[in-house]
Design a protein around this nucleic acid. Structure first.
Length: 827
RNA sequence: GCGAAAGUGGCGGAAUUGGCAGACGCGCUGGACUUAGGAUCCAGUCCCGCAAGGGGUGGGGGUUCAACUCCCCCCUUUCGCACCA
């Protein structure tokens, strides 16, 4: 078994040890060198790494090593997103302390990572569940609180029964929990929030800055999530009362067609309305019915529209017309003002609703080209206003402006922008997270823990109560404290922070990971940031990646950095599949990285995982694919080992001009490969074509060697080509290449060498194959010296026997020539 | 329904600006060496055809001397959003 392969079991540990001893990957700021910051999304320490991690880290490692060799001062750190529920659940189930469980997992994962040979600067390692990390979460919390960016309010929140905690909106998108996909319910609770909405506009605007470096789809998802919408709010007085209903509309131009006002069933003003008794009774029933059907029916997206007349009327301030006030299930309290004006002529939803309940449909916008209005549905396009008093005749575009201005002048409305984005709810009713550093004092109210008392430590216990509330609330010794203001008895806040807080700024902590007076120093941030290349899955497009952007901006406004955006380039990698679907225990299709390392070695796995598909696409794990990569490394090993003892000592000891043609071809191929690999690795990140180019080069080396017979000792060109192959491959398969580099007589590791330089003169073909087409069909190919003129090429083409056969007796009408490539004769 | 991405041999996938479709790898076929092979080496491998030649990048149209590549329409798949007023 063992002798089937090159001895990777000796080679890989040998080099891992040496890299560590020589501290090759530890970096510090150096103002004389250009920096490069490569980062992979840090993992949750669930126990073992999986192939998705291997892909993620192999991509990042290849890139970091490549940038290192290109001369950049390359930062490549690693850490663990170590707070979270699996540890807590393990504690509840088995009585293990979550810290013990977590740190044990980290130990296992670390040994797996070590075996894969990644170039991390471990001196900067970060573990978010340790006090020296989470104290800074608390520090940020208080700083944000002081700036009014952290606040507490009673509100309806998403509650996941599985997780027994509240979730942020981003974590409950589509009404389902991001973690376990179960349905979330609404609960009214007092919760801490971060005021991300203060940054809604900036988060939206700055997507422009990111357009070059981030995938379009991620930005689209974020923009969509922020959901900016420009329109107007208009106040409708309630007839016979001093109350007003405020509605939000993006189509104030249609307001003369409004035939009712519709409120959300949750609208707070409902309780103040002077509703007839029977309507009030029906309202109660109506709400109950909605609540019963709620969760699962919210799933079906085209829920039947249902409404109820309140018996109350409002006055359209434009027309002074009296219109009925309804409530309906399709008006959401969470968006806009929770109240709309229904314009059934120009909004399909209002049309459906109004048709059902017999409300008037009154068209006020008509197509500008005079074509008739569609029948049976609402006309939602812009057009020209009619039946709109003084605004009749205006275009929609003009009316949108004029009418909100008019409303402003008259004092019953204003141009308004709303966002779908809501504040980030960060309270969690869980144990294993950062304690929120606040104290509830009966006299002084809610006050922050003084900075010098941080961190507020989690109790050291594995006995976690699960009675439904926050576990910390059950722990008397944690809860009881004294007020920092009045020194009287007080109670600690018992909720912990969302773990997305931890991951929102870890890329900053890496810069100064051992600092115990600040989260990081400004000068470190100024040197290293932004992250130049951030690699991870797309699953966090509107979770982690938007929180992280918010945090960066808030930190900037706290004076900690001078940076608008923390990540310049985001690369989203595809998933690793087996038999067409994601690996999972329940499907039984998991391939364990450890098994693969044992059988094939880290280099073969890394090579295959990069070769099998372009990195942004999903890839299929294939047994025979990794066999193929393993074979390639075996060939590389045996051929290099065979020539190592006999090769001439220097790779530069030949004169390109003196080489025979058969040698020049290999020299050309070598330079062409340098060129291609440099572009594919650096600009496109297409590792799959990097691997195939190097394989091509190695095949050419094989042919070169085979042609020279068994006893041939090799020449300096062979040395040059082999060494180049090792250099180009070293970011991908660092162990075998360092080993062979050493066997070729070098004392360095390849990451200490500079990246090979492409010489265009040596890479250029001096003979090229020119395709001859007749009317676009290939009829012949000729081999000519590079740089032939158009006239020469045309003459050569016409003289070709195959061409003559095809054009015999026909007149040449046109001749298209692409120098060095193609001649197309049109007859 | 809206938005985005993708569709190329038996399979994973190549193809700078429109310029030789199928690189590289897997698999398969035949051969060599072998006690043996999941090792190694050699040859072949898009389809039709003995050949000359013809056809071919989801389907249909178009632009062009020339289209996997650009434009229009349609189909399929994946992902995201989904009563957002």
């Amino acid at each position: 078994m063992q002798d089937k392969f090159y001895p990777f079991r000796e080679i890989e540990p040998k080099w891992q040890k040496r890299w560590e001893e020589e501290k090759l990957f530890e970096v510090r700021e150096d103002s004389n060198r250009k920096k490069y910051y490569v980062l992979e999304m840090f993992p949750y320490p669930s126990g073992r790494i999986h192939m998705g991690h291997v892909r993620n880290y192999s991509l990042g490692d290849a890139y970091a090593r490549f940038m290192h060799m290109r001369g950049f001062n390359t930062l490549h750190p690693f850490g663990y997103d170590a707070f979270g529920m699996p540890a807590e659940n393990a504690a509840i189930k088995m009585g293990i302390h979550p810290a013990k469980w977590t740190l044990n997992n980290i130990g296992v994962m670390r040994s797996q990572l070590d075996k894969l040979g990644y170039s991390y600067d471990w001196s900067r390692e970060v573990t978010t569940c340790l006090p020296d990390y989470y104290r800074w979460n608390q520090w940020f919390f208080i700083r944000l609180f002081e700036k009014g960016l952290a606040y507490r309010k009673l509100s309806k929140v998403n509650w996941c029964n599985q997780c027994q905690t509240v979730l942020a909106n981003e974590q409950a998108a589509g009404g389902r929990c991001w973690r376990d996909d179960s349905l979330v319910v609404q609960k009214e609770l007092n919760q801490w929030f971060f005021k991300i909405t203060d940054y809604a506009e900036e988060l939206l605007q700055d997507t422009d800055q990111l357009a070059d470096g981030w995938p379009e789809r991620v930005l689209a998802m974020q923009k969509n999530w922020i959901g900016k919408s420009q329109g107007a709010t208009v106040q409708f007085p309630i007839e016979g009362s001093s109350l007003q209903l405020t509605i939000f509309t993006t189509r104030i131009d249609t307001i003369y067609g409004a035939t009712s006002i519709i409120l959300s069933p949750d609208h707070p003003m409902l309780s103040q309305l002077d509703m007839p008794t029977d309507a009030r009774l029906h309202l109660g029933e109506f709400r109950n019915r909605l609540r019963q059907g709620s969760s699962s029916e919210k799933e079906t997206h085209s829920q039947e529209k249902e409404g109820l007349f309140t018996g109350v009327y409002a006055v359209n301030p434009f027309t002074e017309e009296k219109i009925p006030v309804w409530i309906a299930n399709f008006v959401l309290m969470e968006y806009g003002t929770g109240a709309i004006m229904a314009v059934p002529g120009h909004d399909q939803r209002d049309y459906e609703f109004s048709s059902k309940y017999g409300l008037e449909i009154r068209p006020v916008i008509f197509p500008a080209d005079g074509s008739p209005l569609p029948s049976g549905l609402a006309y939602e396009e812009y057009g020209v206003l009619r039946n709109s008093g003084p605004f009749s005749g205006l275009t929609s575009e003009q009316a949108l402006c004029d009418m909100s201005e008019y409303a402003g002048q008259k004092g019953f409305g204003t141009a308004t922008t709303t966002y779908r984005l809501r504040d980030w709810g960060i309270s969690r009713q869980r144990f294993w997270g950062t304690p929120i550093p606040m104290i509830h004092c009966p006299g002084c109210g809610v006050v922050p823990v003084p900075f010098e008392q941080l961190p507020v430590l989690l109790p050291d216990t594995s006995e976690i109560q699960t009675t439904g509330g926050s576990p910390l609330a059950m722990m008397e010794s944690f809860v009881q404290t004294t007020c920092p203001c009045c020194t009287g008895p007080a109670l600690r806040e018992t909720d912990t922070m969302d773990t997305f807080v931890d991951s929102s700024w870890y890329m900053f902590r890496y810069l100064d990971a051992r600092n115990d007076t600040l989260p990081f120093r400004r000068e470190k941030a100024d040197y290293w940031l932004p992250v130049d290349m951030y690699i991870g899955g797309i699953t966090h497009a509107v979770l982690h990646l938007i929180y992280m952007r918010f945090f960066a901006k808030a930190m900037r406004d706290l004076g900690l950095t001078g940076l608008d955006e923390p990540v310049a380039r985001l690369f989203t990698q595809g998933m690793v599949l087996k038999d067409g679907s994601a690996m999972s225990k329940s499907r039984g299709n998991v391939v364990d990285p450890d098994d693969m390392i044992r059988e094939y070695g880290a280099d073969a796995i890394r090579l295959f995982i990069l070769f099998a598909a372009p990195p942004e696409r999903d890839m299929e794990w294939s047994q025979s694919g990794i066999d193929g990569c393993s074979r390639f490394l075996n060939r590389l090993y045996s051929l290099t080992s065979r020539f190592a003892p006999t090769l001439p000592g220097s790779a530069a000891a030949f004169d390109p001009a003196e080489l025979p043609e058969s040698s020049r071809a290999l020299l050309r191929k070598t330079h062409q490969t340098i060129h291609r690999v440099t572009l594919d690795l650096g600009e496109r990140m297409h590792y799959n074509t990097v691997v195939s180019s190097v394989m091509e080069l190695f095949n050419a080396i094989g042919d070169y060697v085979t042609a020279r017979g068994e006893d041939w000792p090799g020449d300096s060109l062979l040395r040059f080509s082999l060494e180049t192959t090792l250099q180009l491959l070293s970011p991908l398969t660092p162990h075998i290449t360092d080993e062979l580099w050493e066997r070729l007589g070098h004392g360095t590791c390849l990451i200490q060498e500079s990246w090979p330089a492409y010489d265009p003169a040596l890479g250029a073909e001096d003979e090229v194959e020119v395709v001859i087409q007749i009317c676009g069909k290939i009829r012949s190919k000729i081999l000519v010296a590079r740089g032939r003129s158009q006239e020469e090429l045309q003459q050569l083409a016409l003289a070709d026997p195959a061409v003559q056969k095809h054009i015999a007796g026909k007149a040449l009408r046109k001749c298209i020539i692409v120098p060095d490539r193609l001649v197309n004769l049109v007859v």
